[in-house]
Nucleic acid binder design. Structure first.
Lengths: 210, 210
DNA sequence: CGGGCTGTGTGACATATATCACCGTAATCC
DNA sequence: GGATTACGGTGATATATGTCACACAGCCCG
């Protein structure tokens, strides 16, 4: 990889650090739909998203996958950075939504860089902070809201990441929200009646102004 | 404070660090029920629990308080450690459940200690990790479980922290779970019928074996 | 002592969401 | 092109949970 490209993706990181990342890291290519991290899998490295969109889920015993948040280019998988030992396992499922590139770095660097590079420290703290906030927002949605509000919150999150036209089916939404397809269909119809969006086979266009 | 006491509470931290904590920190005493941190309040310092039990809530617009987890002696308020700048505000509400003592440290130390003391780095990482896990467990409970399972999970958490006899009312439980008092009363009755617990005015005794 | 709390118990009912059954239509596949 | 499958629409019904109404018991307090 070349340094100026890395600089674009991680504008806050200092140049020496970017060079080191380049030398020590290895790039992994993922195809859309591929799994980056399974629940229970041992975490062996720090993972930074270089390109693409990665979706994080929480799984229950029956294999239901509950969507928690997205990671996109320039973000780190926080979970991969909270491993004090080398034997810790993942609590979440991470899947590439689009084709994606991930930079994989040995866990030991975490600690070294923490003292060596101020910008790394800042990056890690920022990263925790924003993941924490995402989790809290997810909790809010399920703790305090009804399904229509949750659906709205969900759609907005998608639109933020992927633009106004979502290529997604009602079943997929239902799975992400741990609801059922019919419920989502009905709620989407209501939103369509309110002109918040236009539904079509396999896609939803968000048109709500403001 | 004396160092051997601190050592008991934070057994993983190195002695030099404990001395520094002692010099630079200030102790704050809280009475049971007092608020340590309000939503929206600016976070000015790193907060470590020396003694007592602190309860963390998420609040919605109407003032409902949804319980997320407990912090007890030897633990840090992770949120107070994810502030990159000095102007960040709290996303949660923290209340002392018992009388409590909190050690308050200037935010700048966070970064200095990160490079200076390996044990501090380990402590911070561990702390993030376990808070993260707690949040994920909370999400599981509300995303995948019905109210009776959530109540069971809730009661077990309380019992873990406070022992088998809980001094709590049905309304308080309902508030913590964002449910309603009648629902909790009925579910508790069912659990009592199954001999999981004994209810009494203002208290619940958890007796379930295994 | 009596009156007003606070906490609990419980029936009746309202509502949100899940589930079941079934259908039509668009896309896909030999 | 005809069969097959995936997706979306919709009514009927079941279930979980929330809400309302009210009763009762213990407790505090003037």
């Amino acid at each position: 990889m070349d340094i100026t490209a890395l600089q674009k993706i991680f504008p806050t990181l200092e140049e020496d650090l970017l060079h080191e990342m380049n030398e020590q890291g290895s790039l992994k290519q993922l195809k859309a739909g591929e799994t980056l991290l399974r629940v229970g899998q041992t975490i062996r490295s720090i993972m930074l998203i270089i390109e693409g969109l990665v979706k994080l889920y929480r799984e229950d015993e029956e294999g239901n996958e509950f969507f928690i948040y997205y990671l996109d280019a320039g973000q780190a998988c926080s979970l991969s950075m909270v491993c004090a030992t080398k034997h810790e396992t993942s609590e979440v499922l991470a899947k590439a939504m689009t084709n994606a590139t991930v930079l994989s770095l040995p866990l030991e660097l975490m600690e070294q860089w923490m003292s060596k590079y101020k910008s790394w420290y800042q990056f890690v703290i920022m990263s925790y902070r924003s993941r924490f906030d995402e989790l809290l927002k997810t909790i809010d949605a399920i703790a305090f809201s009804t399904m229509d509000e949750r659906l709205e919150f969900y759609l907005k999150r998608q639109v933020d990441k992927m633009g106004n036209t979502l290529k997604i089916t009602h079943s997929e939404i239902a799975a992400d929200l741990n609801s059922s397809r019919e419920v989502i269909t009905r709620l989407l119809k209501k939103m369509e009646a309110k002109h918040w969006l236009i539904t079509d086979r396999n896609s939803i266009e968000w048109i709500r102004k403001e």
